[in-house]
Structure formats: C-alpha cells, structure tokens
C-alpha cells in the first residue's frame, strides 16, 4: 500500500510503499528515523509506535528535537 507521510523536520511529504497492516514503527524503520526523535500523528491524533496504518491515513511525524 502507498502511504503519504509528512516529515516536519525535512518539511516534506514522502510517499512510501509499505506492507498491509504495517505499524508506525515499521514506517520509522523504513525512513531510518529513531522513535525518540518524533511524535507520530495519525489523522490529527497522537498515536504510539504500535498503531496500524491504512492506505488512506494521513501521517505526520512531528519533530521532537528543537531547532537550536
């Protein structure tokens, strides 16, 4: 399935090809992002790394680290 992910730190949206029933933690692994660096938001709500993703979901990875 194709999933659109907005990565706040890069200020860009990426489209990823993930397996059905992938979780946020799988998505982070694909992107090479550490769990402690982002707050995952699915359809406007903060979720944990165990959250399952569907194709139509809107995912945002908010940056935990401050910029300076």
């Amino acid at each position: 399935m194709k999933v659109r992910v907005f990565i706040q730190r890069l200020r860009e949206t990426k489209v990823l090809d993930l397996d059905e029933n992938s979780k946020i933690e799988d998505l982070l692994k694909t992107l090479g992002i550490s769990l402690s660096e982002v707050v995952p938001v699915k359809n406007g709500v903060i979720v944990t790394e165990k959250e399952v993703i569907r194709e139509e979901d809107e995912i945002k990875l908010l940056s935990v680290v401050s910029g300076g």
């Binding site: 706040q8 730190r9 200020r11 903060i46 908010l62 940056s63 935990v64 680290v65 910029g67 300076g68």
Partner: peptide, 25 residues
C-alpha cells in the same frame, strides 16, 4: 522528562511546536 515527553505534553496543552532551525545549528 525526555524531549519526546515534553513535546507530547506541549502538543496536548496547545503550545505551538514549530521547527525553525537556528542557522548556526
């Protein structure tokens, strides 16, 4: 508290979490 915890707390309390990077960073 980890940085992730204080970010979640900020979001849940309506505090703006932007990402403007310092040019010298």
């Amino acid at each position: 508290c980890t940085e992730k915890e204080d970010t979640i707390y900020a979001i849940l309390n309506g505090i703006e979490v932007d990402f403007i990077e310092c040019p010298y960073h």
